[in-house]
Design a protein around this nucleic acid. Structure first.
Length: 201
DNA sequence: GCTAGGATGCTCT
DNA sequence: GAGCATCCTAGCC
């Protein structure tokens, strides 16, 4: 249990916010209950300067949230069937965002398991589509304010040492940029691609 | 253990 | 009409 992250935390460039989100606790309130998990893998998208970003070609109805104030949720549908969620960062107009790629499940495990069809714990949230399914996040939640009472992120004490950096996963442009951040050795990090391992073992 | 390929529908050109 | 910031299954080491 920590303090809820405030607007000022998000209002920085995505490559700064992304590693700071590692180890934080993502919480989704579901009526009386809460679903939560520790963030263990993220990717930064730097908006208008990043060819892999949805915001690269300018504002459209889909990505409008990215051009709004920081600290909101940007949810989109990927490959026609999977939802993926981003945290909007940076100043309005810059359209930075951080994609949440994996969580270490913490609260509401029974609900997550049911939603994930009885898959093992490790497979609840180890991928952007999977964690949205486990938490029940769809485009309904697009634009949700992360300083509100439905969805938020809590600060966590404790060292977030051992942060690994690599190229991002699943994109076709801007592939070489080291903008994927994850907790080294954490078993809930998604596999991704054979893409460049973090330097030395 | 690993890899290849299909599912599926919204978004932008 | 093409292209996806993916996941799952089948099939093969």
């Amino acid at each position: 249990m920590g303090d809820r992250l405030s607007h000022s935390f998000y209002a920085r460039p995505a490559p700064e916010v992304a590693p700071d989100l590692l180890g934080k606790c993502f919480v989704r309130r579901l009526g009386e209950r809460c679903l939560s998990g520790r963030i263990v893998e993220v990717e930064a998208y730097t908006g208008n300067t990043d060819p892999a970003s949805h915001a690269y070609r300018g504002k459209t109805p889909r990505n409008a949230v990215m051009f709004g104030p920081a600290g909101h949720l940007y949810v989109y549908l990927s490959y026609g069937m999977h939802s993926c969620m981003n945290v909007v960062t940076d100043d309005p107009g810059r359209a930075g965002a951080v994609l949440i790629r994996a969580l270490e499940p913490r609260e509401g495990l029974d609900i997550m398991e049911a939603r994930r069809g009885g898959k093992p714990l490790v497979d609840f949230c180890n991928g952007p589509g999977k964690l949205c399914a486990a938490l029940g996040i769809t485009r309904e939640q697009n634009g949700t304010d992360l300083t509100g009472d439905e969805i938020w992120i809590e600060d966590e004490k404790g060292p977030t040492k051992g942060i690994g950096v690599s190229a991002r996963v699943g994109i076709s442009t801007g592939v070489e940029l080291p903008l994927r951040f994850f907790l080294l050795g954490n078993r809930f990090v998604s596999r991704g691609r054979p893409a460049m391992p973090p330097a030395s073992p």
